[in-house]
């Protein structure tokens, strides 16, 4: 099998369609492992991984940890509150200390955009970005594409509408880059105050009216709305947001019949998406989570397993 010719996974903007295809294909084999009764392969036995989470996370952290267990890697998890960050140690010092203990791959979530680049420059270990500030969340973008591909059989020429707080969303950025590289059309919708300035830089279309934005869409993805955006004065109230930009059976009426409804979680029910839609058979929210483990197994394999076989 082919391998990735790179040390780190920092974002989908810098990845090629070929690399993304390789990851998605590898993830498919990984999902087979997950479907076995004994979900464990010895591929990464004796290899060590650090999960470094400077922000709280349930899904992503559990997903990476399970992927490591299924691949037989040894791993340590350090969370923001228990880390030396609170003791005033710099990120560089923290990771260098852990690296000399033999860590070969660092999975990091961090509140500052670009911190994954900073880390990758400062350690020899591979770095997988598990979300850096508002910049990228490449494994989420990959698992979303994996889910779409699984359900639709293709990514090319699909219309994907992403709704909500694009401006502050690393999930949106990774999806925008990844989906376009794979030939999908991306449209975004939401209030103008939640759109990134100079949106043209992403090569996407912005359609402020949700009903029109989902017209003919194959996939609609709602983003989690952070409550602090309201406090920042970017929109008036949650109920107004829900009324104008929330996904409901009425607001998505113009989408295709076989529309996939996605959400990276955790969901604010009744805000970004109605409970009715979230629990409907068009929603693939839980499939996204399953795909997440497969994608992370694939990345661990491609970064650590494929190359350094001894």
């Amino acid at each position: 099998m082919q391998t990735l010719r790179r040390k780190d996974i920092l974002g989908l903007e810098e990845m090629s369609a070929e690399e993304i295809t390789l990851i998605l294909e590898t993830a498919r084999s990984m999902r087979e492992i997950m479907q076995r009764k004994i979900k464990k392969v010895p591929t990464l036995r004796g290899r060590t991984v650090l999960n470094l989470f400077y922000e709280p996370s349930t899904r992503t952290k559990a997903s990476f940890e399970l992927a490591q267990k299924y691949m037989s890697a040894d791993s340590v998890s350090v969370a923001g509150t228990s880390s030396s960050l609170v003791k005033g140690e710099t990120l560089k010092d923290t990771v260098r200390n852990v690296e000399v203990m033999g860590i070969e791959c660092v999975i990091m979530r961090h509140p500052v955009s670009g911190s994954a680049y900073y880390l990758a420059r400062n350690v020899e270990a591979s770095v997988i970005n598990a979300g850096d500030g508002m910049h990228e969340h490449p494994t989420q973008g990959l698992l979303d594409m994996f889910t779409i591909l699984d359900k639709k059989g293709r990514l090319e020429e699909l219309k994907v509408t992403i709704v909500g707080d694009i401006r502050h969303s690393r999930v949106a950025r990774s999806n925008i880059w990844g989906l376009q590289k794979m030939g999908a059309e991306v449209v975004v919708s939401g209030p103008p105050t939640l759109m990134p300035p100079d949106l043209e830089a992403f090569g996407i279309k912005y359609c402020p009216c949700l009903e029109d934005a989902v017209d003919g869409a194959d996939v609609v993805m709602a983003l989690r709305l952070q409550k602090e955006r309201q406090e920042g004065g970017l929109f008036p109230t949650l109920r107004e947001y829900a009324e104008i930009y929330g996904l409901t059976s009425q607001s998505i009426a113009k989408a295709k019949d076989d529309l996939l409804i996605m959400h990276p979680g955790p969901i604010n029910r009744g805000v970004e998406i109605s409970s009715e839609l979230a629990d409907s058979n068009r929603s693939v929210v839980l499939e996204q989570v399953t795909g997440g483990v497969a994608i992370r197994m694939a990345l661990l394999y491609l970064l650590m397993g494929g190359v350094k076989e001894e």
Partner: peptide
């Protein structure tokens, strides 16, 4: 953190307009 524009948007850094 940096000039507000297409680059800040792509990098996910808060802009200074």
């Amino acid at each position: 953190m940096m000039h507000e524009g297409s680059v800040s948007s792509v990098l996910g850094l808060r802009g200074i307009p």
